[in-house]
């Protein structure tokens, strides 16, 4: 099946899968920073669940990549790459901030992942279509949960609304990067392998805008600037990786226990 892909398509698909995996892996790490610190126990559990799901999805994307790039090892990619080799979006790199920032970011990301995976069910690349068929079923629980939180925070107290609006104002322009194509993506879209990001962006905007307004929040203006390429990161990514890779970096060969 992978033989059907030209080398160019294969390369582009590796780029897209790496972007998907890195977004989930880094966001998962940021969410996991709340374990033991969330405002209430139920939410500690919920966010840990979401982080675990996203980590599982990162594993799925990296396994798909492995079948295309000659057998890379997902653990090695997660724990041995430097910041310049990561392809995550800036949105997921930013420190976790306050509760409103974390949940608003997760909501915007979940809505993106839900529309992307839903559309990718029609992929002509069977391994991708099969994998998203599974992921889309899990994502729906995230979106329900984070949508409720955005509503609760937006319609809550004056302070919760102020914090959520501030988070939205900071995150909104960054979300555009999630819909920016990776090198070679046009050919992938033409071959029906991945969904067209422009169409998804429209669907995403309609979905989140309606919910944000219902939650009493002002939707910021759509950014006109081109988003940064996924090769350029904020200074926060290197710090995050230093912590995430600290144990692995002390063992050249890695250990099993």
């Amino acid at each position: 099946m992978t033989d059907a892909l030209t080398p160019e398509l294969r390369l582009a698909l590796v780029e897209r899968l790496t972007a998907l995996a890195d977004d989930e892996l880094i966001l998962s790490h940021r969410d996991a920073e709340w374990v033991g610190h969330a405002p209430i126990l139920e939410e500690d559990i919920a966010l840990a669940n979401i982080a675990q799901d996203e980590l599982g999805h990162a594993g799925v994307w990296l396994s798909l990549r492995s079948a295309l790039d000659g057998g890379s090892d997902p653990d090695t990619l997660a724990f041995r790459r430097g910041a310049h080799e990561y392809r995550c979006a800036r949105l997921v790199e930013l420190p976790r901030g306050d509760w409103a920032f974390t949940l608003t970011r997760q909501f915007l990301f979940d809505a993106h992942e839900a529309v992307w995976t839903d559309a990718a069910r029609a992929s002509t690349y069977a391994p991708l279509a099969e994998a998203v068929e599974k992921i889309v079923r899990e994502e729906r629980f995230h979106l329900q949960h984070t949508a409720l939180w955005v509503e609760r925070l937006g319609l809550g107290t004056e302070e919760s609304r102020r914090r959520t609006q501030a988070a939205l104002d900071e995150l909104w322009p960054l979300a555009a990067q999630l819909f920016a194509p990776v090198p070679g993506e046009d050919a992938l879209v033409a071959a029906g392998i991945v969904p067209d990001l422009a169409a998804l962006r429209e669907r995403w905007t309609t979905l989140v805008t309606a919910h944000l307004r219902k939650s009493g929040l002002n939707v910021p203006a759509t950014p006109t600037q081109e988003p940064a390429p996924r090769t350029e990161h904020t200074e926060h990514l290197a710090d995050l990786l230093r912590e995430m890779q600290e144990v692995a970096s002390q063992e050249e060969e890695g250990v099993l226990w």
Partner: peptide, 24 residues
């Protein structure tokens, strides 16, 4: 893609008058 779920039946008394406490 939907934002709400149907309430499950209580496994102890069988009532459908149940509320969700946590989606996780």
């Amino acid at each position: 893609i939907q934002l709400e779920m149907a309430p499950p039946r209580c496994p102890r008394c069988g009532s459908f008058d149940t509320g969700i406490r946590n989606t996780f």
